[in-house]
Computed example of a mutant assay.
Amino acid sequence: MATDVRGPALLFCPGNRPERFDKALAAADSVILDLEDAVGPEAKNLAREHVVEALGRLDREAVLVRINAVGTPWHADDLAALAPFRDVAVMLPMASSPAAVESITHPVVALCETARGILQAPAIAASRNCVGIMWGSEDLVANLGGSRRRAADGGYRPEVVQARTQVLYAARANGVTPIDTVLVDIADLDTLAADSAAAAASGYAAKACIHPTQVAVVRTAFRPSDDEISWAKAVLAAAEAHTAVFTFEGRMVDAPVLAHARRVLRQVEPPTNTA
């Protein structure tokens, strides 16, 4: 079973547009083949067929499939179609309980986009097959009865920040990948850059995109600076001569510091997608 989600840029791709699958995978770190919001009821069956066909040839370590939510007419059919691909991670929308996650035999990225889902995020992230957890701002604000995501300064309103923080804590407490929400205003790359930088600085590992033009912005925001990369290489090199805590450039270096340095270097490894 997969244990990680390849990031930092995850790109949604409609399941009924198979001509876009390879391009999306080549453009991003992972592609989310979407059977839910991007596909109308009349196209669900055909989209499912396209996705199943593609899973036979795509790099499945870099592919997720967003299935339809529990309780919809398409949920069971989605899971039945994906049964031959147990290694493929599925994204479960409207995730609201660990039971819903554990009812699925695939690795699951839980998409929490309701008040109940956000409050249950710690339990959801602790589910035995949960490998990632993401929050969804659009549906969440609607579920809360609100009308705005943004404050006057352009940042998120307090209730939205709380959801973002809750999901981050839930992910890190349980060792699963925290994924930041999409920005639906495709043309607003400035806000995307600010959102992505804030997500990366707070500890998010990835961010979802809905258009290829957003990928480069997300990657840039999540990429460590040249100074951070140089420091990480140097401190790991210095650690080879020590078996316990040591001092480097005036700072104490222990296991958490070394773990952070390794994480920095993993973030700059070149993508391996060749589709």
Rank of each mutant, 00 (worst) to 15 (best):
R128F: 02
R17T: 12
A208D: 06
Y204I: 10
E49A: 13
V161Y: 03
R164S: 05
R219T: 05
P98C: 03
N129I: 01
E42D: 08
N273W: 07
S97H: 12
L168V: 06
A275R: 13
S230W: 00
D77A: 15
D195C: 11
E138A: 15
D78L: 02
L10E: 12
D37W: 07
L144Q: 10
D29K: 02
A2L: 02
D29N: 11
D37S: 03
D78P: 11
A201K: 13
E42P: 01
A200Y: 10
H260M: 13
C209G: 15
H211I: 13
R6K: 08
R20M: 07
N16M: 10
L183A: 11
A206G: 14
F222L: 04
V90M: 00
A234D: 15
E138S: 15
P271C: 12
M134S: 10
D254W: 05
R164M: 06
V5T: 07
P270Q: 12
G203C: 11
P98R: 09
L25M: 15
Q120S: 13
L11S: 00
A125Q: 03
V52E: 04
D87P: 04
S137I: 11
E113A: 01
H75L: 04
A199K: 12
D29F: 08
A123M: 05
A238C: 07
N174H: 09
G136P: 02
P107M: 00
F248M: 06
N129G: 05
T191R: 15
P84N: 01
